[in-house]
Each structure stands twice: as structure tokens, then as C-alpha cells.
Write a protein that binds this DNA or RNA. Structure first.
Lengths: 690, 690
DNA sequence: ATGTTGGCAGCTCGCCGACAA
DNA sequence: TTGTCGGCGAGCTGCCAACAT
């Protein structure tokens, strides 16, 4: 083995890694979880870290890093795939090298391939390998059927670029494709057993590639003689901590088949889950798993808890912060804890836009659907908890927030058709418990917590405090940056003019530089967050007290509808090449002229209506303040897969950034406002083009 | 593999590990070198640590640890032997658990064993295994020669306790011992190749044990997918640093066949080398190596340099601090750097005791022997440097320190017969160059360095500064402890009375607690070092100036001879059981009534007479101050191997602690004085009993 | 004393269609 | 369509002494 070997064939590597593994793009930003990395070591060594590992208090539970490089590898002995990633914690100082062109590896699933799990006959010394008919016809070169029997020699290369020769013959009664000569050599060399899988790929050059995917049997050759598991875990943490402290590069190995979960997450995926989605106990979701035949299927489950996996060592970590239960009883294999970005919640679009739109809704929801879902959830939770009384009272309490007497009406008319004024009417002024420190929204949240003893609700608040804290950290980081590029601004004082000026400047600057690659995107996002944050603080200090005492002024909410002016059209033109800012502005952003569709065929429960997190929203609504943000042009060329035919646009108005995705890349992010309550003012719209 | 498996058969493990591997006794104190541990990882992963590993400035290059446990292991796949050691950095706070009884594993080499390197015929599928005749007769059960041919079935167990069955037959023309049936199964299961070795042991129960020792081919299955080599190296350092900071236990793995050198060294071995031996450039030594037929032989070499292996990361480390050259040209395999404790210097005992003794010397040294050795060294160094002129002038300068015109006389009469008064006459008052900062002996040394531009001498000084610094660190650690258990003492001021009082208390305390195990030994040694240091500082501040200006007052040296009063007898009683303090006091310590023997048959060069470190000693002798220390009773039961028939007592008067050993354990340590020059006032005496 | 080779059983490997599932 | 089996021939495994070193 040479010391520095080139990256292996990517197609083959990914085929071996499995359908669910997709590596982040080189040059992009990722979130690295030392916790998850530790889990991988535990999985590989079958040894937990002992308790006496030092606490790296300086090391955050997640590190935003730039992914400098990914090299694909495979174990020499076992052909097990793994990759090395070179990460560098992102330093706010570094403005350059944010986004390299998205020309990196495509984790495309090759079509010209097949994968077969080996049978006992395949691996015995008695015979050869029986190839499924379709697989042979799809992947192997066609046989000359004039021969009797038709046969040819196949040459395939494995991950290490070794050549394997096989005799491919079509014989038997009935006829079938077989690999005979050469097969047993391969089986014994790779030490394959029944249950392991082989896969053949025909690459673009017509070359055959050959990989193996072993069944989940215990890793045989774990050289424990290298390091104690403690030292390994410490090594991970210390290496990450050192890189974090010095903003230097570090290398990690990711073994996709051994690791229980990916611990290097694309920042877009992370942001989307953490900033734009709402999670609450009782929420239904689904999640992808690899099946026995190495395809993927979704399993459904319910969130049963939210909280830190390891509150002592990793407080406020999003790593596996959701406790979940699975619908299928025979799912003991699946994790009891997952991370936000691993699951797809069943979200019912909760429409929050102009009355004009809601009036034109053409697909009213089926009456009673929500109630049926609530019943289902309650039944499930009873299974889990065995305490009917608490749950029903929870549901009953939830009607406080849902507006009591309005609940029936909501169900009958379909929640998604409710307009903002109706929402405003649902708040309950008599439940206001907010504290008098309006210039700090955490205080408002804490006050809401004090007024409510529901433990689940407390957990919910803590959870969202985490989200807020994280956001606040980002904002602080951004503020530092801002102070270096712009005159310092004292946020406590009214700065409307200055802020407006800044946005103007920003816009001007962008239009001048539209030929420049969007490397400053994160920068701009941060600045926008700063601005929004600043606006919020101004609003809070000036008006929050009055907001708390008066009915909420929802007029800022209407700012969202200003997108109507920007985007009157209802169809999306398939993007071609670079769009100038001018063209970008003509793109529809939120189409309010047509009803919003239901994104998932099986609609989930309206989250705040689930009855499991009652009592909070009404309080927090009191401290709501809404802002709309300048939107940036979407540079479709960079972000949309050119083969994409749909773009899904999600909008979250929960006070955290929203994002627009084409299901793989974040196309647009922004911030609509800052509001500290967990209501999912979220809408999703899928556009299609031909 | 079960998670917690018991330790393997020790005899077999050691046989597989090789003749040179001996593990420290469980419960004893060891010195752990993170540097060496790192080297093992490099050896196993074939990857150097990159430069950007954080500097663990808190982590010393060597950690004195208690060895809590050793468990023997073998790789499941390869049968490669390794062991886990549980270490705990010794905290001065912890007074207990210093010395556990010496009942631990004996690294005895089993006699009823044989080891054969496999031939091509042995490993081919064509036949069986040809057993050397003597080996078969020694180890295997005798055959029934009435059968024709004589044959039997052998059952042997490997390290994993697997049984292997072989047909043992004595046939062929001429007759020979063969293993036939079963052998090829074993070969293929263990994947043995020609060049690997098999060894059979008959243990005390007559059971056959079977081990393998693979040829030094590259470790095949190094799963690089676990951790980056950086993380591994960091893990080692961080784990050690954490354990050091918290005085907590940590686990390390030692792979004796992969590791270039042992990095967990018995403290006795370390102390003996570091504190009682002198090393200088040009010094000759020998060192053990394993031969191809897995026995051991010694290679000879010369020290060519002294200095830090890694001055940046590990300054002042003794790890591989000696640069060496080997006598045999075909020795490219052997390390270019070794550690002090790995080599056996050729030392000539240098007698420093009462005139009465020297007058009775019965074996005067052969005249001219030293000069011959000098010539040999000079010739060797010329080979290395090709600069005759410098060397001869070096030798000439060395006569300054040796006393110029006295040199011939020393050679002719044998240096060992010179008495202290003669030594005193050899100093040269006109060569005094010492600085005027007498209260810090480092300053004195530096001054000596300034007055001499010989680079080798500088290195020598630096080296001894290391030794001094190490001592000083010990002293500081001890001082901390002292301040917690005794009233604080300001060392700059005269404290004679107080110090004397403390020693009195200490003695009283010891005599009262003589039934208590000597767990306080390290503590007491540290305290004694503190006292000696304190005395030295007092002496320095009060008298050093006058010492520098007047002839050296050598009267304190005579204190060494006070041992005569303690131990008038000349024979050592073989220790039986626990010795009370009273009995211990009757043991001879230094026998001055008989001549000192020559410890090595091939006497080396008198080190300061080598002419390679000239010019320093005379200066430093000026700042010499001598002290004798209270000696502690020797608890032979704890320290002397009950089978031992000799005890070697070494005495060093170079200002660093001396130690008494029975060639394996430190029996007694002490401090004779502090003197900052490299003169080897050293004597060795071997006592025998029946 | 022991490494290698030729001779020669006997057994396993591995190719084939038959026969289910 | 494909997993397993009996049949069967080639080639390898492995025991033996001869021979060489």
C-alpha cells in the first residue's frame, strides 16, 4: 500500500457505502459532531468510553467547519469503505473560501449496477455464482448467443484496482447466467460468506467494477493493541478541540457502514432542520433506513421526548436530541434517539398569508382529519405511557391555546384556511405571564416557563432556548464581523435610519458585484440576521412592553405579503445559466395567487394543535414581533441541480431563518422575524416546470 | 471474544514476545514515556505524527507511575502479543499503595520449549512439519518406539486457548520427527508463511502450548479507518496529560514486537541509569538485541552524541537522548538513538573511599591500560570526525583536569588506588572561572560553560543541566508536599537547626513505624532530597563565595566514610523474612575493609579521563559541596529476589542520588551530595552469600 | 540432522444439468 | 427465475521414502 494513494472510484465507493450515504460537497461548510465521532469509535471498537474522560469544556458539541477535502478509502483487508475528511473550523475572521464551485463529486447513484446478496450456493465451494437474469442483462456485456453455450470472460476491478477474472456463461436447464471459473478465487480471497453482498457496476467507459458489502457481522480484526478506547475517545475530542482553538485543519475518518449516524452534516441540512423546522413531543415523522436488499425504505415514528443525550458532557447539543418511538414493533434495531436532520416530520402546511389567498383555497381539508390524528397519537402515547388521564387532560389543555371554543371550528374548516386575524383572536390576554424585561427575549421565554408547570412544555421551552441560544451565538459572531466591516452600531438605541441605510448599501453593493461568485453568502446571511436581530431589539426595547399589554399588533406580519408585489407570476421558469439580479428578481418567491398544496400525502398533525405542548404559545405570542427581510436573488446555477424539475420552497415564520431548497441544496435562506414561541407558521410550496 | 478476558498464559506470552521483553512488576513504580508510546503508534500505523499536534506543555516527557495492572493479550486474527497496562501517575499526596509485594509475574524464560523458523517445506501444502530432533525429544512426550513407526497424537493450546491436534510420527530414512495430520490446518488457519516461527512449550503440568512469532513483515490489517494518526498521537498525549493532571489511572497498550523500545520502564532501571551512571561522548557500551534465531546477543557501540531527540516538543527528555554508532557495519537495522537505560556502559570502578582501603588494594590495575583505551577511543573518533588535531588537543586539555604532570602517575599506579587527598591536590586554583552568583548552582555551571567553547563540553553541561533540572523538579514537587506536612521553611536563610530537627523527627517516626510497610519510601526519598537541597542552598549562599576563593574544603567528603561505623561487618546475611529496623542497621552498607572488585570483566575508560570533556571539572569542583545523608534500613523482603544470591551495591557521589540494586530492583536510594560536575565518583561492590 | 522432491492415493473443488420452489 | 443437489472428472492435498546438503 502506498502512503498517499489517490481517492478511489467514487461511484463504486458510494455503491458499497449504500444508498443512504451521501458525502458533503468538498469546499462546503459542514457541521461536525465530536459526539457522533465518538460513537463511531464505540461502534468500531465495541467499547464505550469510560466515564473518566476529561471534559473539553471549550469544545462545542457542534463545530461548523469547512470541508477541505474528502478522500475515499477502503480497508485493504476487508474492503470496508471509509473516507478521510479534512475539516477546518470556520473562523469568523476568514471571509474567503466559503463556497467553492459546486462542481465536486456528485453522490449520484449509478444506474448500471446490480447488487446481490450471496446465497449459500454462491459461497460454497461446490459451484459458482448465479446471476439474476435482469442484472446480467443490464450490467454485463451482451453474450454472443450464437455460441453454444454462450460464454465470455469478464474482467472487473475492485476498490483497490485489483483485477478479477470470471467466466460468464449462460447455460443450464432452464438457462441462466453464471459466473464459474474465477468466482471461488474471489470468494475465498475476499472471505465472503453467505449474506454478504456483491455488486457489479458498469461505469461510463463500459468497465466493470466490483464491490462487496458485508453483512453486519462483527468486525473481526479490531486491533485493540493500538490504543485504549479511552485514548481514542480522548484523541477525537482533543484533536477537535485543538483544531477549534487554533482554527486549524484536522482529519477525521468516517466509516459510513460502521457509524450509527453521520456526524459530518452539510450545514444546509443542519440549518434547515434546526432553524426552519419545529419539533415537539408527539410529532409524527418518518426516516429512511437501508433494507436488507440494500435499497431504502422509510419507517414512521413519533417523537417521545426532546432533550440532551448527554446533559453532563454535551449540554445543549442537537446530537440525537430527539427521543423517538417506532411504529413497527419489530424495530428494535432502530435507534431510540435521532437528530433533527435525520427525520422528515409530517408537516401540515400552516398557511399564514393574506386573506385573499385563504379565501381562494380550493382544497379544504377533510373535516375531522385532525381529530382522527389526535386520537391516533393519543392512543399511541397511551401505549407508551399507560396514562390516559394525563394525556386527555393535555389535549384538553391544548384547547386553551387553540382557542377553546374555536377548536371545533378549526377542525371543521381546516386549520390551513384560517387567516391571521383569526389567529390573533385566538390569543388569550388573561394568560399573559411575561416578565418586565422586554429587551431580552430569553427573559420572556423564561417567564412563560414560570407560568407553566407542564414538564413537557418546560422541555419544549428549554429546547427552543437552545435554538435561540444557537442563533444568538451566530448573531454575536456576525456582530463581531460586522464591526470590522461597518461602523459599530449601538443596538440598544433606535437606529432605523442607519439600518435602512445599511440595507441600501448592501443592496447596491450586491448589484454591483453580481458577476462575483456568491462566496459571501454566509456573510450576507449573517449580516441579515444581525439586522433583523437589531431591529428586533429595537422593537423590543421600544415596544415590547406595550405589546405585552395591548393586543398584538400584527401589522408587521403583513410585510410577508409584500412578496406578492415582488412575485406576481405563478409559474417558475426553468433556470438557464446565470441569472442576473434583474432576472432573479422576476422569480416568484411566494406564490400567493394559488392555494398552497399539501407537501406530504399523509398529513401530520398540526404541531401546536397536538395538545402535547399546550399553554406556551399564547404567552409567547404576546412577545411576537415580525419583520420581513430583504430577499437576495437566487443564483439558481449554483444551487439547483440542473436535472431538477421541482423546487420546494419552505417558509418558516417562527422567528428563525427560513430556507428554500430544491430538496438537496439550500437555495435561499433568510430571516422573517424573531418571535419566541414554537408555533409553526410554516408553508411549503412546490413549483414545477417542464 | 468475550469483553473482559482473563490474562493469557504468561509463559507462552513471554515466549512469543521474545527473550528481551520483560514486563515491570505489577504494583511497582515505572516511568512512562509518552514519546515512546507515540513511537509505537507510528510503528503500527506506519504514519508519523504531523507537525500540528498541540504541545502539551503540562505533560512531562516522563511520568512516574504506579503500575496497577498488566493484562496479557493477543490479537485474535494474528496472535500478535500485546499487553494492557493500567498506570497511575504517582501523586505525592498519595502515601499508600507504593509498593505491593513482589509476588507478581516472574518473566522467567521457560526451558522446556523450542522455537523453529518455518521453512518453505514446512509451510507448503505438500507435506508436514519437520521437527528438529533435540527439540522433539526435549518438549514432546516420548514416543513408544515399539510401534512401527512410532507415532502419537499431540494436543497443543495456543494463546487463545484453542486446541490444535497433530499427528506426531517418527519415520523416514534417516528417521526424523514429523508433524503430519493437522499441521496444514494450523498453517492455513494462522496463515503462516516461511520465515514465521512456531514455538512449542511444555508447561509445568506437561501440557503443550503452541505459539507463533511472525517474521517482521508489514502488519497487514491496520484499519486506518478508525482514527487519523494525528488523533491517535493526540489521544496518547491527551490521555496521559489528563491522567497526570488528575492523578487518575489510564490504560495503555504495549506491543513488544511492534514497539521499537519499551516505553514503560521499571523505575529502578531508570533511576540506576539516570542517577547513578555517567554518560559522555565517546563512551563505549553494549546493548542486547534479538537475533534471527530469537536468542539474544550483544552489540557494541560508541556514544556519539548526547541531546534531545525532539528539542521542540520534548525538551530535556531522556528518551533516546544518546546518539550512538555501532561497531558492526552491517548494523543499519539498529537504532541511531538509544536511551540511557537500554545500554550497558563499560565502566571502570572509580574508587573514592578511605585511605585505609586504598592502601590495602590487592589488585593493582595493569599499567598502561587506560592509555590503550584512550588511544582506541581517539582512533574511533577520528574515524567518525576525521579531525585528528582537535582530538589530540582535547586529550591534551584533559590533562589539565587530570592534574597535568600527575597523569602519568595515575596511569602507572592505577587510578582506583588514589586517595582523596591526592584528588584534592589535583585541583587547579588558577583555572577558577566561576561566576559570582553562588546561590544558584545552575549559574555556576553556566559560568563554567562560558569559559569553555568546546561544543562537546557544552552538550555535556546541557545534559547534566537536564539531570539537575529533573532533580530540581523532584525537589520542587517534594517541597510542595513538605509545606503541607511541615511548617514552611524559607530556604534562603540558615535553617540548620530546623533541618536537623526535621531529620530527627523523621528518624524517630521511622523507628516507631517499623512494622508498617515501607510505603513512604518515595516520600522519604523526596524529603531527603529536599533536605539535601536545602543544605546545599544554605551552603551555597553562606559559603560558596569563600569556597570559590579558598581551597575546597573536602572534610564533608569524609562523611561518606561514616558508613564504616554503621557497617563494620564484611559479609551479607541472606535475608529471611522481614528485617526489623534493628536488624537492618546491622547490614553492611559499604564494606570498606575489603577491596572493591571490578564489576565488568572488560573495564571501560575512566570517564573524566577520556579527554573528551575537558576543562569543566576543575571549575566545577570549586563549587562542590558535599553532604552525606541518613541512610534508611533496607527492607530486603520487599526488594531482594528471594532466589538472588548476589546484591550489587552501587554508589555514586556525583551529587545525584545513588541507588543500591540487586540487578532488578532498587533496594536503596539516597543522596550523597550535590556537586555540579560530571566526575564519576562511583564504586560498585558485589556481595555474595551462600 | 533436516530441507526438498517424486510418487501416489484420496479427497475436495468446481462444472454440469436435474429438480424444485 | 434461481437455489440446491447428485454426478463426476481434474487437480490438489498430503503421506511416504529417496535423495541431497
Amino acid at each position: 500500500m502506498e502512503g498517499e494513494k489517490r481517492s478511489l472510484n467514487s461511484e463504486l465507493w458510494h455503491a458499497c457505502a449504500g444508498p443512504l450515504v451521501s458525502l458533503p460537497t468538498i469546499g462546503s461548510q459542514v457541521v461536525y459532531f465530536p459526539q457522533g465521532h465518538s460513537e463511531q469509535v464505540t461502534a468500531l471498537t465495541k467499547k464505550e468510553a469510560d466515564a473518566h474522560i476529561p471534559n473539553y469544556s471549550n469544545l462545542p458539541s457542534q463545530l461548523i467547519c469547512q470541508l477541505h477535502n474528502v478522500t475515499l478509502h477502503a480497508e485493504a483487508e476487508t474492503d470496508e469503505v471509509y473516507c478521510q475528511m479534512i475539516l477546518q473550523p470556520v473562523n469568523a475572521q476568514e471571509k474567503s473560501s466559503y463556497l467553492l464551485p459546486d462542481l465536486g463529486r456528485q453522490n449520484k447513484q449509478c444506474n448500471e449496477y446490480f447488487c446481490k446478496t450471496l446465497t449459500a450456493s454462491d459461497t460454497s465451494t461446490h459451484g459458482g455464482f448465479s446471476i439474476p437474469r435482469r442484472a446480467a442483462e443490464k450490467v454485463f456485456p451482451p453474450l454472443d448467443f450464437s455460441q453454444q453455450p454462450p460464454a465470455q470472460e469478464l474482467v472487473a476491478r475492485d476498490l483497490h484496482d485489483n483485477e478479477w477474472h470470471f467466466r460468464h456463461i449462460y447455460r443450464g436447464q432452464p438457462r441462466r447466467h453464471l459466473l464459474t471459473t474465477g468466482w471461488s478465487v474471489f470468494v475465498s480471497a475476499k472471505r465472503l460468506q453467505a449474506g454478504d453482498s456483491v455488486l457489479f457496476i458498469r461505469d461510463e467507459n463500459g468497465q466493470l467494477l466490483l464491490g462487496i458489502r458485508r453483512a453486519n457481522r462483527i468486525q473481526p480484526s479490531m486491533p485493540s493493541s493500538l490504543l485504549s478506547s479511552d485514548s481514542m475517545h480522548i484523541g477525537i475530542l482533543a484533536a477537535a478541540a485543538h483544531a477549534y482553538n487554533t482554527s486549524s485543519r484536522f482529519a477525521i475518518f468516517y466509516n459510513p457502514r460502521a457509524s450509527p449516524s453521520e456526524f459530518v452534516v452539510p450545514i444546509s441540512k443542519y440549518n434547515k432542520a434546526v432553524y426552519t423546522m419545529q419539533f415537539s413531543i408527539g410529532m409524527r415523522f418518518r426516516m429512511q433506513f437501508e433494507t436488507e436488499d440494500s435499497s431504502s425504505r422509510r419507517y414512521t415514528g413519533t417523537i417521545t421526548g426532546i432533550g440532551d443525550l448527554d446533559p453532563v458532557r454535551w449540554p445543549n447539543s442537537y446530537w440525537r436530541s430527539l427521543k423517538v418511538g417506532w411504529d413497527e414493533s419489530a424495530s428494535g434495531e432502530r435507534q431510540k434517539r435521532v437528530s433533527l436532520w435525520e427525520i422528515e416530520p409530517f408537516t401540515t402546511p400552516f398557511l399564514f398569508c393574506s386573506p385573499a389567498l385563504t379565501l381562494r383555497t380550493k382544497r379544504p381539508r377533510t373535516p375531522g382529519a385532525e381529530q382522527a390524528m389526535i386520537n391516533a397519537i393519543v392512543a399511541r402515547c397511551i401505549d407508551a405511557k399507560g396514562d390516559m388521564e394525563d394525556l386527555t387532560s393535555s389535549v384538553r389543555k391544548s384547547s386553551i391555546w387553540l382557542g377553546g371554543q374555536n377548536m371545533g371550528r378549526i377542525q371543521s374548516m381546516g386549520i390551513s384556511s384560517m387567516n391571521p386575524d383569526e389567529w390573533a383572536q385566538m390569543r388569550r390576554p388573561d394568560s399573559v405571564r411575561a416578565a418586565a424585561k422586554p429587551d431580552h427575549h430569553f427573559a420572556v421565554m423564561s417567564a412563560g416557563l414560570q407560568g407553566n408547570c407542564n414538564p413537557e412544555a418546560s422541555q419544549q421551552v428549554l429546547f427552543h432556548q437552545n435554538q435561540q441560544r444557537l442563533l444568538s451565538q451566530n448573531v454575536q459572531a456576525g456582530t463581531k464581523l460586522l464591526q470590522q466591516t461597518l461602523p459599530p452600531v449601538i443596538v440598544e438605541q433606535p437606529q432605523h435610519n442607519q439600518q435602512q441605510l445599511h440595507i441600501q448599501e448592501q443592496r447596491k453593493c450586491n448589484s454591483q458585484q453580481h458577476t462575483q461568485p456568491l462566496h459571501h453568502k454566509s456573510l450576507q446571511l449573517e449580516q441579515r440576521i444581525i439586522d433583523a436581530r437589531r431591529s428586533f431589539l429595537q422593537c423590543s426595547s421600544n415596544n415590547a412592553q406595550s405589546i405585552l399589554e395591548k393586543p398584538v399588533d400584527l401589522s408587521p406580519l403583513r410585510a410577508i405579503n409584500s412578496f406578492e408585489a415582488v412575485s406576481p407570476s405563478s409559474t417558475l421558469v426553468k433556470p438557464q445559466g446565470l441569472l442576473s439580479r434583474q432576472h432573479a428578481n422576476t422569480l416568484p418567491f411566494i406564490d400567493t395567487t394559488r392555494p398552497l398544496g399539501v407537501p406530504h400525502s399523509n398529513p401530520g398533525l398540526i404541531k401546536d394543535g397536538s395538545g402535547l405542548v399546550p399553554g406556551l404559545a399564547a404567552d409567547h405570542l404576546q412577545s411576537a414581533a415580525w419583520f420581513s427581510m430583504e430577499t437576495e436573488p437566487i443564483r439558481m446555477h449554483d444551487h439547483l441541480n440542473s436535472n431538477a424539475t421541482t423546487a420546494q420552497i419552505e417558509m418558516s415564520a417562527n422567528g428563525l431563518p427560513f430556507c428554500v431548497t430544491d430538496s438537496e441544496h439550500v437555495v435561499q435562506t433568510g430571516l422573517f422575524g424573531i418571535i419566541s414561541h414554537p408555533s409553526p407558521f410554516q408553508s411549503t410550496r412546490t413549483y414545477s416546470w417542464s
